[in-house]
């Protein structure tokens, strides 16, 4: 593992993405990627009483699914990196409280998933872990409630407003395997271009991609 250029890390023995799982909400299930998701929900509450509990259930079931699919015993998974959009990362901390794997809470908003995979691969490359689980969730309704307006409010959203995904994705990274491999990581810097519109997140993030 060594640093290339200004902010890239190159791995000598690239970690493998050995298993993936995803669960998404009803709107995501209508999109062109529906066939690639493991499970599509019909109900945004998934039988729970609140959006937050529903999101917790989604990330819990997604991580359970990725562990079951991988065939790796959960006591052989050394660390868990997970996060979400809500205050104190409550979806992942409540959702994963029964998983019984040492836990790192990660927050990077849209980049949380890639951030958790970057950190996980450094752990594997360094020899500190053989298998790590990386997971992220978000829920349209819980995000709107926390960051914008109540869903029942009769306001108009501008054409630049985006849809926060209802769903969760999880991967298991392993020290050895068939690939795909994580060969390099390049974390971005915080760039504030002064965009103040909460309905135009893409333009806020756009500048950070360079």
């Amino acid at each position: 593992m060594n640093k290339l250029g200004k902010q890239t890390i190159k791995f000598d023995a690239p970690p493998t993405i050995s298993q993936t799982a995803s669960i998404v909400g009803p709107k995501e299930a209508q999109g062109p990627m529906a066939k690639y998701f493991d499970q599509c929900l019909d109900d945004e509450f998934w039988g729970e009483k609140t959006w937050e509990k529903a999101e917790s259930k989604i990330i819990k079931e997604t991580t359970n699914m990725v562990i079951a699919k991988s065939g790796i015993a959960s006591n052989e998974i050394d660390f868990c990196f997970a996060g979400d959009l809500l205050n104190q990362c409550i979806s992942s901390s409540f959702g994963l409280r029964e998983i019984n794997i040492p836990f790192f809470g990660v927050f990077g908003a849209c980049s949380t998933f890639v951030e958790s995979m970057s950190l996980g691969s450094v752990f594997i490359e360094s020899g500190a872990a053989k298998n790590v689980i990386c997971a992220t969730s978000s829920h349209f309704c819980s995000a709107e409630k926390q960051f914008r307006f109540p869903l029942e409010l009769g306001n108009q959203r501008p054409p630049t407003s985006q849809w926060t995904v209802t769903g969760s994705g999880a991967v298991i990274l392993s020290a050895s395997g068939q690939g795909p491999y994580i060969t390099h990581i390049t974390p971005g810097k915080i760039v504030d271009m002064g965009i103040k519109d909460a309905n135009n997140m893409r333009c806020c993030y756009g500048a950070c991609s360079f």
């Binding site: 108009q156 054409p159 630049t160 271009m193 965009i195 333009c203």
Partner: peptide
């Protein structure tokens, strides 16, 4: 920031 703000205004679709 001013240049980016102008660029975003130009690229963003306006409300009808």
């Amino acid at each position: 920031q001013e240049k980016y703000s102008k660029y975003v205004d130009k690229k963003s679709p306006n409300s009808p």
